[in-house]
């Protein structure tokens, strides 16, 4: 499923007329099957944008099209949209409420028209996809699980609906390195299987290593977008934008300041490692 956004704006009215977290005149498109990242400081409008894409807020200006259809137009099938777009918000683990893991994951399938058997099969698939032993976990209380497990159950609840677009807001915050890598690998597999992914993150390594395209927001405006590698390299040139740099880029920058410019330009850890190997084994240009 493709998404297109035209002149999208949103502003939160505050009691004293102040406007906070606004999105200002944003336009872009995301092709079906893409893995798009959204980058920006806290308060830049990322979460607002994701909510608008999922049809959970009405824009104060502009339009959102999903597969060519405007989702806020009169007569648009919004409940159908909810089935096709899955959103995993920040701290999804706080949204668990049912008495068992199975019931929690099945909740989103209530109005899906699936039979009982189909629902169970879906729930089993979703939980196994998230790395659980279905037989072991199905009757456990979600509250008895660890934080990381709760988050995986919450994501399984979204997956169970088999959405064509998956939207993640800060999915790796608070996860340890293994949890992070496992999660990102799983998202990559979902993407390779055809699901369109949109992921907002503060983790530069996650964005650089996994996304194909990037959207960069600053104070509600889209300040850059394009292929991930190119965007990272452009952000490096903006001297006031210290945010959008990977750890490997920071090291490459320090080396360049001491007259050791690595080539080709470094974005990821692997870029840095192979450039240094060339440079330091005598194969470099010196």
């Amino acid at each position: 499923m493709a998404i297109k956004v035209e002149n999208l704006s949103y502003s939160y009215e505050q009691p004293f007329g102040e406007k906070v977290g606004a999105l200002k005149n944003v336009s872009f498109s995301i092709k079906a099957g893409d893995f798009a990242g959204v980058m920006g400081h806290t308060g830049c409008g990322k979460t607002t944008l994701l909510q608008l894409l999922a049809g959970l807020r009405l824009p104060t200006g502009g339009r959102v099209y999903v597969n060519g259809e405007e989702i806020n137009a009169k007569g648009y099938d919004r409940s159908g949209l909810r089935q096709r777009i899955g959103v995993v918000f920040q701290y999804p683990e706080y949204q668990l409420f049912a008495t068992t893991v199975e019931k929690d994951v099945a909740f989103g399938l209530k109005h899906s028209g699936l039979s009982r058997q189909e629902v169970i099969a879906r729930v089993q698939w979703a939980l196994e996809t998230m790395g659980f032993d279905f037989a072991k976990v199905r009757n456990q209380s979600p509250l008895a699980l660890s934080g990381g497990e709760k988050r995986r159950v919450a994501i399984a609840g979204v997956l169970a609906r088999k959405p064509e677009i998956l939207i993640f807001d800060e999915p790796v915050a608070g996860l340890d390195p293994h949890g992070r890598e496992n999660f990102l690998r799983f998202v990559k597999e979902m993407n390779q299987a055809g699901t369109t992914i949109i992921m907002a993150s503060h983790n530069m390594e996650a964005l650089a290593g996994y996304t194909k395209h990037l959207l960069v927001l600053e104070e509600g405006r889209l300040i850059d977008s394009g292929a991930t590698r190119e965007v990272f390299l452009r952000l490096q040139q903006r001297n006031n934008w210290a945010f959008g740099q990977t750890k490997a880029q920071r090291i490459a920058t320090l080396l360049a300041e001491g007259n050791l410019a690595l080539s080709p330009a470094v974005v990821t850890y692997d870029d840095l490692l192979s450039a240094l190997k060339r440079e330091l084994t005598g194969g470099g240009k010196g």
């Binding site: 750890k247 490997a248 090291i251 850890y269 490692l273 240094l276 190997k277 330091l280 084994t281």
Partner: peptide
């Protein structure tokens, strides 16, 4: 990262 790089470079003979 610097520690990982140190070890990965060693493996490559650096």
């Amino acid at each position: 990262l610097p520690v990982r790089l140190y070890h990965d470079l060693r493996q490559a003979g650096v």
